[in-house]
Amino acid sequence: MPAEPLLTVTRAGLYVPDGDFHIDPTRIVPRAVITHGHADHARAGHGAVLATAETLAIMEARMGPRFAASRQALRYGERAALGGVSLRLLSAGHVLGSAQAVIEKGGVRAIVTGDFKRRADPAAAPFELVEADHLVTEATFGLPVFRHPPAEGEVAKLLQSLRLFPARPHLVGAYSLGKAQRLILLLRAAGYDLPIYCHDAVLKIVDVYRRFGYDFGSLRSLAGATPEAFAGAVAIGPPERLAPALDGRTAPPVTVFASGWLGLRARARRSNVMLPLVISDHADWDELTRTIDEVAPARLWVMHGAEAALVHHARLRGIEAGPLPPAIDAAVP
């Protein structure tokens, strides 16, 4: 490792001094690389934004055309020279357009995974793996109790429920960016070809996916649907907005929620849904540890979630590991 690290941390988040840009900053900055379009990573108001064309399209759909002063699109694998460093975006497998940021200078390579997963997703490009000297990984599910089951098996539970309760609408709570589109495509892959009702927040993002060539079959707007249409139908949307959308118009719904957290029994029970589906767009423990082992970094920073177990895992393998270091400008309030 060179004396001068490629990555540091400021109060706005991960920062590349030699390129003078932040990655997924939590505050407004002059230059930002955005890994993907979820709100905790992509904010409006930055000066220059660099991201995949898909992520830029998602940001525009959610925040309007003036979300940044200027923008630059980068294809997966394409290189951009930023200041003194070279930047590539590699697919992270998380949602449409999600990317890992690969920063190189003088033969040293650092990777910021952003949010990622390793398993197949019909609504996202597959994860790409490269080795690196310095890895910054997410750790949303960074405990060995989180091992997600195959998504296909979880969707089979939804289809079984539709057979068991044919007269009841199935309200599937899912994030409107990524999880909803993945669920729709998983249902289609399992042979479910009836119209699927979507909350408008989902349809807005579906439009972006469609522009990049995804086919979801017949989708309908939840807002315009009649009560009769809902007997036995699937409706997908943000969980808190689904129930009111149907309020009083149908037979009692079967409530479904798709999230990696539901692998924990207590979480599933507190969620109060009838059918919890353990489907996550984040790497589980096995994927996280496998990624650390395969990237084989000399240094590991762990962010976004439960750090201690992953740090322990990496240290056992001789990796210099820890949570994100404190911000270099933190002393000034």
Binding site: P144, V145, L264, R265, A266, A308, H312, H313
Partner: peptide, 23 residues
């Protein structure tokens, strides 16, 4: 199971049987 991982997991899950099932 690695005792450190067991400790962290049980602390997080809060229920021994559930921890065993998952881990």
């Amino acid at each position: 199971v690695d005792p450190v991982l067991l400790g962290l997991s049980e602390d997080y899950v809060g229920d021994l049987a559930e921890t065993v099932a998952l881990l």
